[in-house]
Simulated scan of single mutants.
Amino acid sequence: MKKLALKIIEKSGAFSLFNRFTRNTATIFMLHRTTRKQKPGEHLLTTDTLHDFLDYLHKHNYRVVPLSVYVDALINKEDTYKTVVFTVDDGYRDFYLNAFEIFREFKYPAAVFLTGDFIEKRLFLWWDKIEYAINSTAHEEINLEFLGEGAIPITEKRQKNEVILKIVSYCKKIGNQQKLQIIDNIIGSLDVDLTGQPEGIYEPLNWSEIEEMSSDGIEFFPHSKTHPILSHISRDEKEIELGQPKKIIEDRLKKSANIFCYPNGQPDDFDQETIEILRSSGYIAAVVGYEGFDSSKDEIDLFRLRRFPVPSDLYHFKQYVSGLEYFKRRLRSN
């Protein structure tokens, strides 16, 4: 909804009128990156905004529960009135540096999905490779012949961002080996050294930080081994991608890691074979990357639990958690 309309609802105190629509469902939010201060051109969740979100939930008596508790509630058909769940994808270190202290302040849980080889420091996430190469190169243009476009200038930040988005979008649609080869070709053509480990904004969590957070209310689950589009790889590759990170997390933390997050998580990014392997590997549920609510009153596909990208302002946050968004979607479906 438009922010003006949400402000009117806020001033009239009408958000609470929609709370009855939160019964038997929950709002699951999906976070990726957090920052203490927004830089020009960035669209990351700031710590101030996150603090405002959690403070609102605390003051208005919402239940913020671990993802595992919500999955159990769905299985057992329990009421989930005014329930919110936070999930965090990939395993970047900025969650520990920026967001963890805010969750700890409110004693609220979150579920972090770890990309196995990234955490084990064997992997520079593939989209970060593209971004790093284009932002770091001394070259003033890039050859996008593989997209049918030829040489494109990348001297300005806007040009770089457009090219990064274009390449990443294309790479999500092609086979895994073809994607990796294209990225290697880009890095080579731009004369960028990517032989070291990810640092700075690209740095992963380390196990000391993971263990500390695990003992303080944060859950950890697998997000695959190397973050491929699972529908683009073979069954044998899927078994490795789904099985290895689960074993690593469970061995390190001595806790169950039986909920999965599909890389990218759109409907075409995984298939029924993926779900069959998840079940046989001991997983009980999985979250996707597209929007929606799941209700314990309905027949639920536990391997397609829907989430919402965390909004950028408090008014839209209230829209999602209050029941207003659920009410809107129900109206549209009738």
Rank of each mutant, 00 (worst) to 15 (best):
N176M: 11
F18E: 04
Y170Q: 11
S68K: 15
R23C: 08
I134L: 15
D72V: 10
E239P: 02
L67W: 06
K77C: 15
G91V: 07
Q319W: 10
D72T: 14
S215P: 01
L123I: 10
E209K: 01
S12Y: 00
G41A: 07
E145H: 10
M1E: 04
Y132N: 09
P198S: 13
K39T: 08
G116E: 02
P198A: 12
S189A: 15
V71E: 05
S231C: 03
R36C: 03
N161P: 00
G323C: 02
R304K: 14
S16G: 02
V85N: 11
S136I: 04
Y315T: 05
A286M: 01
Q244C: 04
Y56N: 11
K173P: 01
E241P: 04
K129I: 05
E325D: 05
M30Y: 00
P311G: 02
S16E: 10
D216N: 12
Y320G: 00
N24W: 11
Y170H: 15
T274H: 02
A257V: 13
V168R: 10
T226H: 08
S16R: 12
S281L: 13
D298Y: 02
Q178M: 10
K157A: 14
D94K: 12
K166G: 03
I240N: 05
S312K: 07
L67N: 03
P263Y: 03
P311E: 02
Y70I: 06
D268P: 00
S295D: 08
S296H: 09
R63G: 05
D55I: 07
L45Y: 06
I130W: 04
F29V: 03
I75W: 02
F29M: 03
N206Y: 04
P228W: 10
F113L: 06
E105T: 14
S16F: 05
S322K: 01
K254G: 13
F327C: 01
M1H: 05
P109W: 09
S16N: 02
E42L: 02
T34H: 11
N334D: 03
L54F: 09
S312Q: 13
D52Y: 09
G13M: 03
I164N: 11
I154Y: 11
S189H: 09
